[in-house]
Computed example of a mutant assay.
Amino acid sequence: MGKVRAWTARARTSFAERAPFWASRGELGAWEQREILRGRIAELEAVLDAVAARAQADIGANGADPCYAEKARAELQAAKDTISHKWHPTMRRAAHLGVAQSHVDSALNLMVWMSSLDDITAHLPDIVARIDEHFAPGDPRRIRSAAIARKLNDPKNAELRPGDRAFLAETISLARRLKRRETLRVRSFVRIVKVVTVCLTVGAVAIAVAGYLWKHVVPLCFTPHTGQRYSIVCPTSSATAGLTRPTTTQVAAITRRADYLVVEVVGIVAASIASAAALRRIRGTALPYDVPVVLALLKLPTGALTAVLGLLLMRGGFVPGLSALDSTAQIIAWAIVFGYSQQLFTKWVDNQGQALLDAVRGPQSPGTPSDKRPCEPPGP
């Protein structure tokens, strides 16, 4: 038992030493955002020292309390530990950035509690803008924050009461949590799309393998009647059958093992073209989650499956007048059409992905009303 414990301890130590290397491999494009966050933490540490020193000197004058500085420093240190990967054993891509950002937001909220009146007034535009982004125009919290901003911008009535400070601190904290929740929804959406893409890919591969092993079970062949003779037309081969309708044995003899594979490859190519065309409607994002990429990858196995299923529907006579394609070229052409038609189904997923990205609002978000900011000084 003691040997097992010793081996487990050595394994944990070895993993902790290699964690930065493995985490950097799994991090990929999030490295730049990690360094941006690291720089932000260093900036806040310097600002926190200045705010704490000012709060210590002015304690009692503006209601500032320097005891929040210790907790704020602890939150910033927790953020630095998180992005160092030492306490991130799962190594999920970009998850550590969200956790670190939560610690940074907590430090910022604590700094609101300890900041002086001048500091609060200087940060009012950012505070009010963030509140406006995440609360409806008629929300009481948004209305009250606007009233506080107007009062603080009035030199004659500028006074930060303890209740106003508490309200601003709690409201901006809630706004940051709402933004984080919207970001988590984007991450959950990306994971769901990835799982669905993997499942569809497995299904497409299974169909191709089944078609290769049992080519005569459900052949993708048509038996058009031209003149007085019947023909057998498959995706990769064709032959003349005779004066009578071809039997199942005759159709199976013309079928090739690569029929399903060829149709799926054609469907994937058509879906890739549709995916490239759909990217024009997807705007970029600063989030460390590749929403446009996963949406584009979803279309590929979907196109392979719609190409096969569309041809099966035509072979079964589901589409009147199109149940007897008379050439291999026509089969391939319809496979292209059906592969591209996956856009009819995946466009709803595209719209949902873009809606989630729009929900994570930023300074340039189109969802922010364009009315006059309540933090602007009142006119004469």
Score class of each variant (00 low, 15 high):
Ala61Val: 13
Ala61Leu: 14
Gly63Trp: 01
Gly63His: 04
Asp65Glu: 13
Asp65Arg: 14
Pro66Glu: 07
Glu70Gly: 11
Lys71Val: 06
Ala72Val: 02
Ala74Trp: 03
Ala74Asn: 14
Glu75Gly: 03
Leu76Ala: 10
Gln77Thr: 13
Ala78Val: 00
Ala78Asp: 09
Ala79Cys: 01
Ala79Val: 00
Ser84Gln: 08
Lys86Ser: 13
Lys86Ile: 10
Trp87Ser: 07
His88Glu: 14
His88Gly: 04
Pro89Glu: 12
Thr90Val: 03
Met91Ala: 11
Arg93Glu: 14
Ala94Pro: 06
Leu97Ile: 08
Val99Trp: 10
Ala100Asp: 02
Ala100Ile: 00
Val104Arg: 02
Ala107Thr: 05
Leu108Val: 04
Asn109Ile: 00
Met111Phe: 02
Met111Tyr: 06
Met114Lys: 03
Ser116Leu: 07
Ser116Val: 00
Asp118Asn: 10
Asp118Cys: 02
Asp119Tyr: 01
Asp119Thr: 11
Asp119Ser: 09
Ile120Cys: 02
Thr121Asp: 10
Ala122Met: 11
Leu124Trp: 06
Pro125Gln: 03
Asp126Ser: 12
Asp126Trp: 10
Ile127Asp: 06
Val128His: 03
Val128Gln: 05
Ile131Met: 05
Asp132Pro: 05
Ala136Pro: 00
Gly138Phe: 02
Asp139Ser: 07
Asp139Val: 00
Pro140Thr: 01
Pro140Lys: 04
Arg142Glu: 06
Arg144Phe: 05
Arg144Trp: 03
Arg144Cys: 00
Ala146Val: 04
Ala147Ser: 12
Ile148Lys: 05
Ala149Gly: 08
Arg150Trp: 08
Asn157Asp: 14
Asn157Gln: 13
Asn157Lys: 15
Arg161Tyr: 04
Arg161Met: 06
Arg161Pro: 00
Pro162Gly: 07
Gly163Trp: 03
Gly163Gln: 13
Asp164Met: 03
Asp164His: 07
Arg165Gln: 07
Ala166Lys: 15
Ala169Arg: 12
Ala169His: 05
Leu174Ile: 10
Arg176Ala: 14
Arg177Tyr: 05
Leu178Ala: 09
Leu178Trp: 04
Lys179Gln: 15
Glu182Ile: 04
Glu182Cys: 11
Leu184Cys: 05
Arg185Met: 13
Phe189Tyr: 14
Phe189Ala: 08
Val190Ile: 08
Val190Pro: 02
Ile192Gln: 12
Val193Leu: 08
Val195Pro: 04
Thr197Leu: 08
Cys199Val: 15
Thr201Val: 04
Thr201Trp: 06
